[in-house]
């Protein structure tokens, strides 16, 4: 009867991104790291479901470098009962290999519900949650904005183009959280103190199965310096001419 939540350690979304000397990764100097923002909705969802069930544990799982214990500590402070740190010797993994490792670890926890963020704020693959579900042989509903549980059935809404899909699934199941699912709680002082006393379970991972390999990381192409067409409404005819004749987009 466990509620598992997977969190990733990522650079703060406000951070400036500098590419490292290897040309394949980012230079972490001076970069602040945080739990990926969508993962906070996932943590809150796990906590809410445990509270509703009145039983079981919330277990936070993170595959990441040694420093990721800080992000797990944050989950404990928010109210997670346990934290498992899958220590990764590799700085980057493709979503398939991340999912394979997470699925192995989660499978041992007899999860009732497993929560993920809809996508990570660094590489933004939007893949790991659903891949873990398939590997665990579980159904999944991704990018959910609501979640209701009745017995062994969950009903969730997810946004699709031009509307909302209402999906029902048997539980155990995997869910990935979209913004709006809930309002993540702040850690209380008591929670922070309690988290300091909890131990984070550790497992080491060193396998490097890269189905998808980074060849290079580059700054985005600079958009050509734009043109001020003019000031005020008088510039409109010239703008429309440019859109019609130069850009040919209308």
């Amino acid at each position: 009867m466990n509620f598992v939540v997977c969190i990733k350690r990522v650079p703060d979304t406000e951070a400036r991104i500098k590419i490292a000397a290897d040309g394949k990764s980012i230079d972490p100097t001076g970069v602040q790291f945080i739990p990926s923002p969508y993962d906070e909705f996932a943590i809150e969802a796990a906590l809410l479901q445990k509270e509703k069930a009145g039983a079981g544990e919330v277990i936070a799982v993170c595959l990441g470098p040694a420093e990721a214990s800080g992000e797990l500590r944050k989950c404990l402070a928010m109210g997670a009962d346990r934290a498992i740190h899958l220590k990764d010797a590799h700085a980057h993994r493709d979503p398939a290999s991340t999912a394979a490792i997470l699925a192995k670890a989660i499978g041992d926890l007899s999860p009732r519900m497993v929560f993920f963020g809809k996508s990570s704020a660094d590489h933004g693959n939007s893949q790991v949650g659903v891949q873990v579900a398939e590997r665990l042989g579980l159904p999944s509903v991704s990018e959910i904005v609501t979640l209701e549980v009745e017995g062994d059935t969950a009903k969730a809404h997810r946004e699709i183009e031009g509307g909302v899909e209402i999906v029902s699934t048997s539980i155990p199941a995997v869910f990935t959280a979209q913004k709006g699912l809930n309002k993540p709680r702040k850690a209380s002082l008591k929670g922070i103190m309690a988290a300091k006393k909890k131990t984070i379970e550790e497992l080491a991972y060193d396998e490097a199965p890269e189905g998808l390999e980074i060849v290079s990381l580059d700054p985005p192409p600079e958009r050509q310096a734009g043109r001020i067409v003019g000031e005020g409404a008088d510039a409109v005819p010239e703008l429309v001419r440019l859109l019609r004749e130069e850009a040919k987009v209308i």
């Binding site: 650079p11 979304t13 400036r16 991104i17 590419i19 980012i26 704020a121 660094d122 590489h123 933004g124 189905g211 998808l212 390999e213 980074i214 060849v215 290079s216 990381l217 580059d218 700054p219 985005p220 192409p221």
Partner: peptide, 12 residues
């Protein structure tokens, strides 16, 4: 990647 702050080139 990184919300458009970088572009990754990947091979399979």
């Amino acid at each position: 990647v990184y919300s458009g702050k970088a572009i990754a080139t990947l091979k399979f």
